[in-house]
Each structure stands twice: as structure tokens, then as C-alpha cells.
Design a protein around this nucleic acid. Structure first.
Lengths: 132, 132
DNA sequence: TCCTAAGGTTACGAATTGGTACCTACTGGC
DNA sequence: GCCAGTAGGTACCAATTCGTAACCTTAGGA
């Protein structure tokens, strides 16, 4: 989280309340992280350049750093072939796939809220029109 | 997302892949956010000072900012009584409670991983001893 | 008269973050 | 010869972030 994010993900923050989901959220929270996981999940294993093109706007530095972090957390695997030019393929590990379910539910909740908000906005717009 | 974290949560990042869980993760990812939600969930509605004492280490500024963000997202409610001294109570909204399930699962996965890692470490330690 | 308490807000400053530009090494195409 | 593409690494620079300290209100207590 990290937090955003913006804290060192290894530092356990002195353990005030001991929230078990903190680590995992701190992992997911990193910028771009969900985009990367989402892409790997839906498009399968991909090479660095492919991923960079899909997650448009990300810098190579960021992508590298995120991939290293996710690899370190065991969420994805990095296969390096020392050909010329080199070929590096990233794919989700078993652990990475274990997040599919949770992330799916999270997405579900997010989409429901989005839909509810849209409905609310539409309702309010209609009320405004009716009031004219 | 924190996030990061570290991005403005309102900015939709130009929508490259349109990941539906991005918004919600960007919300949860903020530093301290899970601690706050966890506390409100387990200890019920609380006043500002109480919360600050429980989430030890957080600064008043951070707590205020996080609470405002969560309130803006509709995850918690802020009840202000203009007594002297003022009394402000925070509690989870219906939406806030909708996260209970997902966060519970996330915590479950996190704890399973932790346990697995601990088992791995124990195994390796035993192997080291056996190799002596 | 000064201090405490509540729940903040504001200004300042240091640390982190993430983008840009440039570097590697090697091959293929023009 | 020069440029592109592959997968990065490194240095620098600007912006953001978060903590600290100070300040606000008002009432009551020493």
C-alpha cells in the first residue's frame, strides 16, 4: 500500500494492530500493479515489450520495478532466455492465480458500486429535468 | 496505491486497460486505510481520538485525510456533534460493510501464505540442522 | 492565568517517487 | 554507417507525500 503507497513494502510498520491483509494489499496497491496482473491473467504469459505496450503509459523503469516486486512476492515467474536479442517472459505463478478469485470479487463490488453511482446520477439528472 | 500509492485517486490514469478493480484498490491501498477499516469493523464506531490511539503511529493529519477520503468514497460516515469539546464519531456505512467479505478473503489468503512461508522456513531450518 | 481536552487546519521541510534521458550488448535491415 | 528492437540499468530532476510543529475554538479546573 502501500501506499501506498508509498511506504517500503518490507517494513512492517511497527505492528500496531497486526492486520493480516496489510501485506497483501501493500503488494497489490503499488501503482500499475493491478493492470499488470489483469493483463497477465487475461492475455496469458507475455514478454516485457508486449506487456509494456498493453499497459500503455507505464515507463520501462516502473514496469521493471513492479515486475521485480511481484516476482519477489512469488506472484509471477520470470523466464529468461539468453538469446540475442534476449527473450524474457512473465507469467502468473500458482500464487498469482490464487488472487484471481479475490480480485474477481473485488472487481464485482467495484462494478456494482459504479453501476449504482451511475444510476444515482441518472436519477438526479431526471429529477433536475422534471423540476424545470 | 497507496497507493501507492502515490497517485491522485481521482485521476483515472487515462484508462489504458480499464481495470474495474482499480478504483477500489486505489481506495484501499492508501496508507493506514486497512488499519482504519479493520478497527472500525472489529471495535465498532469510534471517535477520532480513540481511533488515533488504536492505529498507533498515525499522525492526526494522516488520519484526518484518510477519514475524509473514505467518507468521500462512502465507506464510512462521520457524525459530528457540535458540543464543547466537539464529538466526532466514525462508523462504517453499508458500503463499508460490503467490503468485509472481500477483505476477509484477502486476509485469509494472506494468512495462508504467511503460514506456508513459515512452514517453508521451518523446513529449511531443519534441513540445515540435519546437514550438519 | 495557564493548562487541558476535543477535532481539527495550516505552513514548512525532508524524503520518497516516478519520469526522462542516456548507457549497455548484439543482430538485422537499409 | 546508422538506426531499430530486445531487456533492461543508471543518473538526474521535478513533483508528490507525509511528518512535525504551530494554531484555532470553547469550557472547565488548578
Amino acid at each position: 500500500m502501500n501506499t501506498a503507497v508509498s511506504r517500503n513494502e518490507a517494513e512492517p510498520r511497527k505492528e500496531s494492530v497486526s492486520c493480516p491483509m496489510d501485506f497483501i494489499l501493500r503488494m497489490l496497491m503499488g501503482p500499475w500493479t493491478t493492470y499488470i496482473l489483469y493483463n497477465l491473467k487475461t492475455h496469458g504469459p507475455q514478454r516485457f515489450g508486449e506487456l509494456k505496450r498493453r499497459v500503455s503509459g507505464i515507463s520501462a523503469k516502473m514496469l521493471t520495478e513492479r515486475l521485480r516486486t511481484l516476482e519477489g512476492a512469488g506472484l509471477l515467474r520470470r523466464d529468461y532466455e539468453a538469446t540475442i536479442p534476449p527473450k524474457v517472459t512473465y507469467s502468473l505463478t500458482k500464487r498469482g492465480h490464487e488472487l484471481d478469485d479475490v480480485l474477481g470479487r473485488l472487481a464485482e463490488v467495484g462494478m456494482r458500486w459504479e453501476a449504482e453511482d451511475a444510476a444515482q446520477r441518472a436519477l438526479r439528472a431526471m429529477e433536475l429535468k422534471a423540476a424545470e
